[in-house]
Design a protein around this nucleic acid. Sequence first.
DNA 1: CTACCTGCAAACGGTTTGCATTGCC
DNA 2: GGCAATGCAAACCGTTTGCAGGTAG
Lengths: 143, 143
Amino acid sequence: MKKTGKSPLNEILREAGFRATPGKIAILEALFKADQPLTIAEISKKLKNNLDQTTLYRTIQSFVEEKIARALNFNDRSIRYESLIDAPHHHHVICKKCNYVEDVDICGANLEKLALVKSKSFKAIESHAVELFGTCNNCLKKN
Amino acid sequence: MKKTGKSPLNEILREAGFRATPGKIAILEALFKADQPLTIAEISKKLKNNLDQTTLYRTIQSFVEEKIARALNFNDRSIRYESLIDAPHHHHVICKKCNYVEDVDICGANLEKLALVKSKSFKAIESHAVELFGTCNNCLKKN
DNA sequence: CTACCTGCAAACGGTTTGCATTGCC
DNA sequence: GGCAATGCAAACCGTTTGCAGGTAG
């Protein structure tokens, strides 16, 4: 699924099989502009609660299905979503104190090969997720 | 039947500050014997639903707090728990079809160093999680 | 014009809380 | 005997479903 770096959001929506409604554009824009993955509640807040919760849930779900967004969770209960538009493969560093998330351009692909050697039950490994946990500089200062 | 490298389960419970009640022993045993991380529902089933759900939730939570178990989630909605007793550092390969989980003895620690170089907002990274996704040999056969 | 999208209300299900009772140490 | 642990019932809250009306293409 390739996206040019320049298609406006409504075009991206149509390519993904959606109608470019104000609601869908607003949600996609919120995800796209966000500097880190957002929860449903955070998206809702960014849209000033102008959008019905139901619509939000349904839209996000359809975005994930059509792979213009993806769901993430960092070992807490909340699910976060990030835009996949113009998003190269990357992983995340998460602050244990404040939950700040930074994208990092590192890749654990060689771990896939390593795991194939060690694994008894898998001869096919197709993808991987890596999350790193630490304390962000802001929180380090506060202590 | 697995054996702990040191104390029996009731001793481990007491060391962690708990009373060695039948319920707690049963839950810890279920986690310890399981060959893969379990959801609350799966634990409940293994205990033949003899244990109140409330107790189960509260107990698991206390286990996680006292670090004799840990919570995991593999990008779906369900949270899974695994025993930390005699558990060396490891990661997981998850089958995308059937959710089978295998532990793999690989480590992404060097990714932490790599991320420290690339990151703008972190000078401290303390831990990491790696999940690999593939198709298990059983599911490969079925196709 | 029609199929998709939206909003409202209600249902749903996993999880949590309050409280009285039980039982480990 | 004291305090943690348990079970039950009810509350809680994020999420989903059904349906009627609205809107993009």
